[in-house]
Each structure stands twice: as C-alpha cells, then as structure tokens.
Simulated assay, not measured.
Amino acid sequence: MVTKAHPPTLRELIKHLSKLPGLGEKSASRIAMHLLRAPAADAEALAQAILRLKREIHTCPRCFHFTDGDLCAICADPARRTGEICVVETTADLLALEESGAFRGLYHVLQGALAPLDGVGPDDIRIRELLERLEREEVREVILATNPTSEGEATASYLMKLLEQRPVRVTRIAYGIPMGGDLKYIDKVTLERALRGRQQVH
C-alpha cells in the first residue's frame, strides 16, 4: 500500500500507473520501483515512446484502425482481399481477428457500438463512413463481427437493415463465441471457427 513513507514523486507515478487497465496499486508500485532501479536511459526511452505514441498515432482515414502512417498496415497491404470488409467495434477486436489468421480481407472499425441508454447513437460511431466506403470501393461482402453483447447485437441488426437494399452480401460472424463475451478475450481457435461458420443474413 502506498503511504507517506513513499516520496511524493514516487507516489504520483504510482497513482498514474494504477489508472492503467489491469493495474492495481500493488502492480503499479512494482512497476514504479522497477523504473526507479532501471538505468535512466531505459526510463527515458519509455517516456519518449509514450510521447511519440500520443504525437504520432492517429486513426486510418479508410478503416479507422490505429496507424502512424497515411494508411494502416492492413489497408496499405496490396495482398489483402479488397472485396471483403469485416466490421468490428474496436481496434482490440481487429487485432484479435488478425492474430487468429482466419481473415485476409479489410476491416472497418466502428469505434464503438450502439448503446441508446448511454446516449450512443448511429451518428456517434463510424456507420456513415462504412456506407461511404461501400459507395467508393468494390465490396462483395460485409462481415458483421460486432461482439455478442446486447450492444453488439443491436449494432449488427441496425447495420443489416441499412445494408438490405445494397448489392452486397451481408454475413454475421458465427456464434462460436459465448454471449456476453468480448472478441479481444476469445481464443484463436474459437475466433477462426466463428469466422468460417459465418452465415448470410440476406
């Protein structure tokens, strides 16, 4: 436990570290003590990497994944199948699917899901940009890979209705994933089976 025996500078670092997801006060204290004992060059390199992250990382203007270039590595890869777009809620979900190796098309990151009770409507996530991509790009299939939560299901249903009249195949990721689960925590095999077992919704 952090006490007044800790120097104020160390207490402040522990306070900031403990705000990171998955880090409690004890873990934050261990990291702070490690940084205190580490060579100054290592601590400075970490600080610089964090500053560069905030300065240089932005969203890809095409799919809204994170990048430090004009396009993200996936959109810029000429080997990707451009006729398929997999729609996910977050970059963490995109990374989980990428790690499974089951999908070689492109992505569209909504940066959220519909949650009317929390005031998140269609204009608050990247739905308009998805529709604009379908106008610009030659897309044959849209795979809805939103999470199997009430918000993810509501988002998928909304998108299905929007895409009904468009000349594109719309599929939903299969239910190899437990209800209430989160894509970023699902194992690779389950993700691969869910993608392979996707079903057409219209």
Rank of each mutant, 00 (worst) to 15 (best):
G112S: 05
L163S: 04
V120A: 07
D68S: 13
S157V: 11
D68K: 03
P122G: 08
I125H: 00
R104W: 10
N147I: 03
R80Q: 10
P148S: 09
A154W: 08
C72P: 02
M160S: 09
I143M: 05
R133C: 04
F103D: 06
L117G: 00
L94P: 00
E151I: 06
V87T: 05
A102R: 04
R80G: 07
A96S: 13
G105N: 10
F66R: 01
E138L: 09
A156C: 08
C86I: 11
G105P: 05
G101S: 11
E98D: 04
E151P: 06
V88I: 10
A79Y: 02
E151D: 11
S157Y: 12
G121D: 11
E132G: 10
V120G: 04
V139E: 02
Y107T: 01
D70V: 14
I125V: 14
C86M: 14
A102W: 02
T82H: 15
N147E: 15
T155A: 10
Q111G: 11
G121F: 13
L71R: 14
R128T: 14
G83L: 07
D93A: 13
F66K: 00
L95W: 01
L94W: 03
L117H: 03
E141T: 12
S100Y: 11
P116H: 10
H108K: 02
L131H: 02
D93V: 04
A76H: 02
D123V: 10
D93I: 07
L71A: 06
H108S: 12
T90Q: 14
N147L: 04
E153T: 08
L117W: 06
A156S: 13
D123F: 12
G152E: 02
A113M: 12
S150R: 13
D123P: 04
T149E: 07
E151W: 07
D124F: 02
C72Y: 00
E132Y: 04
C86T: 06
T90P: 09
S157L: 14
D70A: 15
M160I: 14
E84Q: 10
E137W: 01
G152Y: 10
I125D: 00
L97H: 00
L130G: 01
G121M: 08
G83C: 13
P116S: 06
H108M: 13
G112H: 01
E98K: 05
K161W: 00
L117S: 03
H65Q: 13
E138W: 01
P122E: 08
L97K: 00
D118L: 09
I74W: 11
R81K: 15
R136E: 15
L131W: 06
L159W: 02
H65I: 09
E135A: 15
L110V: 05
L159S: 00
A154R: 06
E153N: 07
C72A: 04
T149G: 07
L94T: 05
G112N: 08
A113Y: 06
P122L: 08
L144Q: 09
E138N: 14
C63S: 03
K161Q: 08
G101P: 04
V109R: 07
Q111N: 15
E153Q: 11
E138A: 15
A145V: 01
L95R: 10
L144I: 11
P116G: 08
D124Q: 15
Y107N: 05
R126K: 15
L130C: 09
L114V: 05
I85F: 07
T91C: 10
F103N: 08
